[in-house]
Nucleic acid binder design. Structure first.
Lengths: 331, 331
DNA sequence: CTGAAAGCGCTAACAG
DNA sequence: CTGTTAGCGCTTTCAG
């Protein structure tokens, strides 16, 4: 059942039917109702594929995230889907699993005409590689990748957020503040920025950074963070404040500390990062850096659509706001 | 840069290029390399939209879930994306927000040729409505909707799972076991089945079901569950076991009980449902009914693909396994 | 084993 | 205000 079938039934040309379908204004009222009736009786729906082939636009954008089941990313996805929807776009969510090859594959979807543009939270791929492959694909980067000047980018001020977090801990009288989550193989650069803010706040308070207090974690899994905490405790390391690179690390740390009989927040105050659901339902609840997800989503979608619509020029670099959500773990 | 451009550069016809692109076997080796070179130098990528228009297949399936940011659904999405991928399909994730109209809209995507079929976890739409609209759209239902015989369906045995959960609590000597989550406006039917299993286990143990112990919740939000617990406690209701319809309800209940100075599991043992991340990082960790998500995903994708490939006949009704994951809240 | 040609269903000039 | 028509880029008979 095609446009021409409707046209035949209504006794008009395809162009007229098309006009009605597209709410083109210069169509007589009687014509419109007649065509609409034919559409309804036939139950006609325009074929999007055919429309795409001729217009060259799909009305879809791809969102590439490392992990769908991570609450921060699924919240971001939710926000982006809503933002895109309100602007007439749909979102194809792609999970990269943090694998470089799959991250690059997302760009090819654009080349294959599957989507008009890509919003991309890289974990592995360096921005240099993105810049190379990008060619003319509209792309907006999310997160803290070392940004090449050529690509649009949305992030929160990680240095500042880490600084604010550490200052919050210092204000409570914490003296030995550790950083959990110098993730190995993290190309995205978040760790470095957060560490920088951590160090900066310590410096300002006249404290020196003890490298032992910077705990490495060898993956983004909770188990890895728990292991790091356990090893630190076993080695005799003690601290009274803990800034975590990630909420998952925070809940894992909380659990591990508790197993060792260390009380939170009495003995150790914890600050997490992302404001995922986990931190609202943990016991105690966890103070977190909370990126303004809706703002991030809106900025990313807006910039992407501008690029899709032909905007050229150097990459724009936008900062979205964040807040420190104070909860029980560091009141 | 089209197929014909490659053909021109290689000095062959489009058909030959197409053969190479599709790894058609009857192509001479020399021809193949010659064409491949042309493809490489031009950086040619087949246009998926055009391919779709002619083949009529998109290679995509839609997954409609109520809420992307709910850990259970995002885990299911993850599993389905992986299952689909291994079978050569991609997944368009759609969030319905549990709104009936949007649930039905997903079906129209198929009609518009956006996807070849739909995997659908209904929250509002009754299966009757689905059966009506379905027409010839390949659909597989997830979850506990009252299933119309005409549509394929995957679920776990909710009655049995609830029964096993209650039996587990009874084995621990719990006598007054409450059920949290008789959700109002839940068309999906999960509540009814879980309640049935709850009642069945009580009956078998010679206990009678106290209607007061069945706590209503007026939405799927955690706050609603917390409110229900608070009201129950304020009214003087006491219980020593709690089966929750949903993990979110379980963590909310845990938090609320703790606020009232009630200890878990000493005073009240809790069992959650879904095995979402929340229950692994709560304090105490929560015993849950854990549906086998990978199996559910594999079954759903397999059945859907069979339908897409033309399988007809009455709806098939498959049960996926589940386990009771014993954690601290009900050891 | 390779080439020519006819569409897939829709859009958008361009006429009328 | 409405109709005709030429593609969008690819697949796929059907010949050769």
């Amino acid at each position: 059942m095609r446009l021409s079938d409707v046209a035949k039934l209504a006794g008009v040309s395809v162009k007229t039917v098309s006009n009605v379908v597209h709410d083109y204004e210069h169509v007589s009222e009687s014509m419109r109702t007649r065509v609409q009736e034919a559409i309804d009786t036939l139950g006609y729906r325009p074929n999007l594929t055919a429309r795409r082939l001729v217009t060259g636009r799909t009305g879809m954008i791809a969102l590439a995230i490392p992990e769908t089941a991570h609450h921060y990313f699924s919240s971001i996805a939710d926000a982006i889907v809503k933002a895109a929807e309100s602007r007439g776009y749909r979102v194809l969510i792609e999970q990269t699993d943090g694998i470089a090859e799959r991250e690059l594959a997302v760009m090819r979807d654009r080349e294959a005409g599957l989507v008009d543009g890509v919003i991309f939270q890289p974990a592995q791929v360096t921005s240099l590689e993105i810049a190379e492959i990008r060619a003319d694909t509209p792309v907006v980067l999310l997160g803290e990748a070392a940004m090449p000047l050529s690509i649009d980018h949305v992030m929160i001020d990680n240095v500042e957020a880490a600084k604010v977090s550490v200052e919050h801990l210092l204000k409570q009288g914490r003296k030995k503040i550790a950083f959990l989550g110098a993730v190995e193989n993290d190309n995205a650069g978040a760790t470095i920025r957060r560490l920088a803010g951590y160090q900066y706040a310590l410096d300002q308070a006249g404290l020196f950074l003890d490298p032992q207090l910077v705990l490495s974690v060898d993956s983004f899994m909770a188990e890895a963070a728990a292991l790091a905490i356990r090893k630190a405790l076993e080695s005799g390391l003690r601290f009274d404040g803990l800034l975590c690179r990630d909420d998952r690390f925070a809940v894992a740390a909380l659990q591990e500390l508790r197993r060792s009989g260390i009380r939170v927040p009495e003995d150790v105050a914890i600050v997490g990062w992302d404001d995922s659901e986990l931190t609202q339902f943990s016991n105690p609840t966890i103070t977190v850096v909370a990126p303004a997800k809706d703002t991030i989503a809106a900025m990313a979608v807006d910039m992407l659509i501008e690029r899709i619509e032909g905007q050229t020029g150097v990459g724009r670099h936008r900062l979205a706001p964040f807040t420190l959500e104070t909860r029980e773990s560091a009141p």
